[in-house]
């Protein structure tokens, strides 16, 4: 009963969070370490046979970027979280990683609080663009990262898309 009351209260208090980025735009990204280089293939790129359903779905969700031409995707991690990034957690509180669509001025942010991942979508100037497209929405982030527990561990993905082209 107590948990239900907490749930209802939270529902009433935090409706605005559903639409906006939850994670904050991190400072000093330029000083972060590049840990992975990947791509979002263009609309016309045919994925290799046997590509996992998760990647097929991710590509389908984001291949509209850059007018359907795709984009380079780089992952940056703050120096102090490099070790926990390699083991996919546990993460300390604060920003954990950013994924930058280099050709499209889009930055996806992952932050952790009490071991829980939260997400945000920004441009390079730090403007919240999570409402500008359904695939930037925080719920879409949660739907993909948090819900796919066996692919995205503790909010950071285990399988970069580029790997499938390197096999």
């Amino acid at each position: 009963m107590k948990s239900i009351l907490i749930f209802i209260t939270l529902c009433l208090l935090t409706p605005s969070l559903w639409a906006n980025s939850t994670a904050s735009f991190p400072k000093n990204i330029n000083e972060w370490i590049l840990v992975k280089e990947s791509i979002i293939p263009g609309k016309n790129v045919e994925l290799p046979e046997g590509t996992s359903l998760f990647i097929q779905n991710t590509v389908r969700t984001y291949n509209w970027i850059n007018q359907g031409k795709g984009t380079k995707l780089n992952i940056y991690v703050p120096k102090e979280k490099l070790t926990s990034y390699k083991t996919h957690g546990p993460y300390a509180d604060g920003p954990t990683a950013v994924g930058i669509y280099e050709d499209s001025n889009i930055i996806f942010v992952t932050e952790h609080i009490a071991g829980e991942a939260i997400y945000g979508t920004y441009d390079r100037e730090g403007n919240d663009i999570s409402s500008s497209h359904p695939s930037f929405n925080v719920q879409a982030c949660i739907q993909c990262h948090t819900s796919n527990k066996d692919i995205c561990m503790n909010g950071t993905c285990a399988t970069p898309i580029i790997d499938i082209f390197q096999k």
């Binding site: 935090t14 939850t22 994670a23 509180d93 609080i113 009490a114 829980e116 939260i118 949660i142």
Partner: peptide, 24 residues
Amino acid sequence: KLSTALLNKNIDTVKVNFLLHRIE
């Protein structure tokens, strides 16, 4: 864990409440 985090004065309560809401 999240409830404990709320006790921290420097914590962003909005973010913690969002996470609490999700777990509830």
